[in-house]
Design a protein around this nucleic acid. Sequence first.
DNA 1: CTGAAAGCGCTAACAC
DNA 2: GTGTTAGCGCTTTCAG
Lengths: 366, 366
Amino acid sequence: MGEHGSEHASSNTHGNGNGRREVTVSDVAAAARVSKATAARALGDYGAVSDSVRERVQRAAEELGYRANALARTMTTGRSNTIGIVVGDIENPFFAQATRGAADIADTAGFDLILSNSDEETESEAKAIGVQLAKRVDGLLVAPASSVDIRNLRTIVDAGRPLVLFDRVAEGIEADAVIAANRTGARKLTGLLTSAGHRRIAFISTLLHTDGYRSGEVLGSSSVAERVAGFTTTLAEAGIPRPEAWVRLNARADGVERAAVELITGPDAATAVVASDSRIALAVFRAARSVGLRIPEDLSLVAFDDADWTGLTTPSITVMSQPIHEIGAEAARLLVRRIRGDGGPFVTKVLDQRLIERESVAPPRL
Amino acid sequence: MGEHGSEHASSNTHGNGNGRREVTVSDVAAAARVSKATAARALGDYGAVSDSVRERVQRAAEELGYRANALARTMTTGRSNTIGIVVGDIENPFFAQATRGAADIADTAGFDLILSNSDEETESEAKAIGVQLAKRVDGLLVAPASSVDIRNLRTIVDAGRPLVLFDRVAEGIEADAVIAANRTGARKLTGLLTSAGHRRIAFISTLLHTDGYRSGEVLGSSSVAERVAGFTTTLAEAGIPRPEAWVRLNARADGVERAAVELITGPDAATAVVASDSRIALAVFRAARSVGLRIPEDLSLVAFDDADWTGLTTPSITVMSQPIHEIGAEAARLLVRRIRGDGGPFVTKVLDQRLIERESVAPPRL
DNA sequence: CTGAAAGCGCTAACAC
DNA sequence: GTGTTAGCGCTTTCAG
């Protein structure tokens, strides 16, 4: 292992504190015996420079180890070539995939990504957005912590930065959005269960929500709201009374597995569950096992998101697959277009979900 | 949906291209009837300002909607409060978790994260590092695409930026590192298999490597190298000839599942597999199923990383759990310390792995 | 095609 | 405590 910090004294006032002064255009210009402006033109690849001079400058830059200061460039051009992305939690496979989708498009278009986790809380979301705006990102991609409280989003729009929402929409904000057809997906998924004869079906989501869900209430996340709508509608159509009583939100605070156990045991136990994402499905699977319920004989289970392992369990799980990668990618595409100055009307792209029927659904026991 | 782009004409030369001029300290200073310096002191929370003036300035800032320009601040202070992180692929749960661990520490310390995917290729890694350096990140966290070719890492050190490696180390580079005790982990995992009586055991990794593995060869990733070392040593100790013949690298290019099928079928088929990560374990699981092999009766399987689903399959999978979150977090801690000027000798932190025995190991068939 | 000069928004020296 | 001035590294007029 080496030694560190011996040369910590700084000779220049500014700089990165490691004692080395960065090579600048001026340095390169001097070495190449041209003006700063000319060197900058050659280095920045803009304006007009004669081939001979360009070559001379580039050689000098090479020798001196010149590396452009993107910040200084941003100061004068106003473009940072950076976009901010705010997700609920990068550890959540949904966000990890969407982020990758966005990163690929961004990268191709020459943009870097500043990543922030909101933990689905508007407060930390506000902080993240504040910092990203301060860093003058060219635009933002956000999966809003709330579809209802749009103040954070308004901050972005007011700051004049292009904004594209993904996974969730928000009413009343001037922004594009990319979401999945959650209501339709929920209907299909739930329909599988009612068709099989289930009448006591629970919907489980980790969405934070005060108190229990009551019909007509506005939910914080539009995607969950859509799923709930599709779910309750399907139940109602099947003649099941009080569908909203089967909607279980807030499952995170209480522990998803525990919430699941409550729902699938007792006299009025659900005989089937719709899990709002793959992590919830996992918890339900575990819960069923812990209370000795077999899937699908004793409990049917369907879920959103085709996580790679859902095809591996015994039984494998029937899921509604979302084009997660594409959600992120398309959001990034829209954003890049806006940054480049596209002034068309705002659009909300709705991507289809795809049902993958596997083995986790069976008729209820009598 | 609203309308966009009607007001695209820009009145100022610079700016973000949306026609709005950002509010600056000067504006605030004028409004508060103080000098720019005083306003800046009040806004930036440094230097000395009287309470009355501070309040006046802050009110003015509020009214004008002032938002500090972090870039300009970086220009003069040399600190960007941003750290770069380069991972193989954010979609890989390992990197997603490590990134979250790093993000939490960074956030607490007041740093933002610029995220890049290298796809484990030194070329795109170089590009990512180049951009991050240009953006003057205060330091970098990187899971190097190569532990051998250290040119990209040298670029960082030469640029005078603190660097902390995670998951993999690299010889000859002045940087801290945080890794897991992979060799020991591999020994334990493999030992489980030899103890059960297996003699044809395959190790599968997606690490890119030209041609087959030969003993003593240097591998691109130090963590895989360590695992291979632990694996072959254990085989050798069990008296198994030519252990290196059982090391299968490059499994990505050929398709992991396909590689697995090749290894577990045929006359010389392996009776047990050590999967170098949870995604490989998943492919092996699938492969076994596709060729009609039961786990653990026909094939034993152990893997690195305690992915959440590994306890759910039938049978559940015996794994070597890594403190992934902590790897990222500790790396970030070390980096922040360096950025703050810690000049101690470079350290390599080695975190323990933990064996979780489940149901996927049994004696081989006769 | 090249150069000189101004300026992006901020902080750091240095006066007062 | 407060103001003045200079300057970070770059791009952009504007001249020539």
